[in-house]
């Protein structure tokens, strides 16, 4: 017996992958893990609740959003550009890490996570948020609420929320251009 397949081409972390023959009904998380060997995105609940599995979908209009790969079929990403947790830090041509992103560094500096299972999801959410604020800054007084709204959907079973939120808030306040003084 063979599963029906469809060809898929997707750009991941700046690199075009495919065309790959993808079995009908394969979820994106399984494509990442089993076929592309990108195992950093976490499978948590498998029903789109915990958000540990999100990747960033870069839309053609310059905006980005998180997409839950555990409930989104691989076929959805055909022809699209995405970023996974593997593509967030800066790398050299050999694939070695040159530097972590400000969000990743802040999570380390502030001991934001314990077991780390949810961390890739939090990194993606914070990255999307910071890029959005670079396009449309918020008043300084709204940073706390903005962070809470952006990260709210992400579940951390170690309950490390305070330090995650604190780290993202600090990155936002320390990065010029993400906030404005008047509301």
């Amino acid at each position: 017996m063979s599963l029906p397949t469809r060809p898929l081409t997707v750009t991941i972390d700046g690199r075009q992958r495919g065309p790959i023959d993808v079995p009908d009904g394969l979820m994106m998380i399984d494509l990442l893990h089993e076929i592309l060997d990108l195992t950093g995105s976490r499978l948590g609940c498998g029903i789109g609740i915990c958000h540990a599995c999100v990747v960033i979908w870069d839309r053609d209009d310059g905006t980005s959003e998180e997409v839950r790969t555990c409930i989104t079929g691989a076929g959805f990403f055909d022809g699209k550009r995405i970023r996974t947790i593997e593509g967030i830090a800066r790398h050299n041509d050999k694939g070695e890490i040159l530097s972590l992103s400000p969000v990743q560094q802040a999570f380390l500096d502030q001991f934001s996570f314990q077991c780390g299972y949810c961390t890739p999801g939090f990194v993606m959410a914070a990255t999307v948020l910071i890029e959005r604020l670079a396009r449309t800054p918020v008043p300084r007084g709204q940073v706390e609420a903005t962070v809470a709204a952006a990260l709210e959907a992400h579940i951390c079973r170690c309950t490390g929320y305070v330090r995650y939120y604190q780290a993202v808030r600090d990155v936002i306040l320390a990065t010029p251009g993400l906030t404005r003084d008047v509301g």
């Binding site: 009908d24 009904g25 979820m27 789109g48 079929g73």
Partner: peptide
């Protein structure tokens, strides 16, 4: 059908049977 597989089947299942007590 492509949209169903891409956006719905992850929770509702390819056969549409859902997940007991959840979906």
């Amino acid at each position: 059908r492509l949209s169903y597989v891409a956006l719905c089947a992850g929770c509702h299942g390819l056969d549409g049977n859902g997940v007991p007590n959840t979906v």
